[in-house]
């Protein structure tokens, strides 16, 4: 009997605080699996944001820094510039990256900062209680768009992957999802490509990962996966928006 799937080395044994069915846990594991497979655990520094994944430093068995809200790309820049040979990634939610941190992510990409960003898009603010995020869909009800997001009042959701793909400094930008098995496998491949882009010094890499928030969407985990598929993917198409051909091939 051989073990073929178990907790990756780059994850600690700590139980996670995330709500039941929240796919942050899957994304953490995918990042950890990629770090293990590329044998980077002792050469990686992670940066966690402010939001549900602020406590990621309890779950990644790596050197970590906790960044101010929205500033993870700047903190990651500081680390990477001091240790260019190390792998540096920032793990951010949609409020952290696309709202308060919009300037930081745009300029990190524009600078071609050789960091990898894991951008978890669940179309809502989780930790603070279900508020509207820049990626909240039109019509989506949140605690700060109680009658559904109205474009006339709150404007339109931002497609981050497409936006960043227009920047020269971006070397690898893709959007994936983790709402079912097939997509989890693709998501892992994309995360691996992002880390390989960094290892090959090609420039800025980001993977936008559509993720669920059962608690604040008011759905069961499985209903949330369905909702993501039927509502988020049409507005946030999956795929690679910037990819250097030979990366990791």
């Amino acid at each position: 009997m051989i073990t073929i799937y178990e907790r990756p080395q780059s994850l600690t044994a700590n139980t996670m605080h995330y709500c039941p069915g929240c796919t942050h846990g899957i994304i953490h594991r995918l990042v950890a699996e990629v770090i293990d497979e590329l044998d980077l655990r002792e050469d990686t520094v992670g940066v966690c944001p402010v939001g549900c994944s602020v406590l990621a430093y309890n779950y990644f068995n790596l050197d970590m820094q906790q960044a101010a809200h929205g500033r993870a790309p700047a903190v990651a820049t500081g680390i990477k510039r001091v240790h260019p040979a190390k792998v540096v990634f920032a793990y951010q939610g949609d409020g952290d990256l696309a709202s308060i941190g919009a300037a930081e992510i745009v300029h990190a990409a524009a600078r071609g900062e050789k960091i990898s960003v894991i951008f978890v898009n669940n179309a809502i603010y989780g930790m603070t209680g279900g508020q509207m995020a820049p990626t909240t869909l039109i019509g989506q009800e949140t605690t700060t768009s109680p009658n559904g997001r109205d474009a006339a009042v709150q404007g339109y959701p931002i497609r981050v992957a497409e936006m960043l793909a227009t920047l020269e400094g971006s070397a690898y930008i893709s959007r994936v999802s983790v709402h079912n098995n097939v997509n989890v496998i693709k998501a892992k491949a994309a995360i691996k490509k992002a880390f390989q882009t960094q290892l090959e010094g090609k420039g800025f890499s980001l993977v936008e990962i559509l993720s669920t928030c059962p608690t604040n969407w008011g759905l069961t985990p499985l209903e949330a996966a369905k909702w993501l598929e039927n509502n988020m993917i049409p507005y946030y198409p999956l795929g690679e928006f910037k990819a250097a051909k030979e990366v990791g091939s």
Binding site: V45, V47, Q65, A67, A68, R71, A74, V75, A76, T77, G78, I79, R81, V82, H83, A103, E104, V106, H107
Partner: peptide, 17 residues
């Protein structure tokens, strides 16, 4: 940096490194 806010957070990262 793109702003003083970004700059001080780069300092945070570099100092922490």
């Amino acid at each position: 940096a793109e702003s003083e806010v970004a700059a001080i957070n780069m300092v945070y990262g570099a100092a922490g490194a």
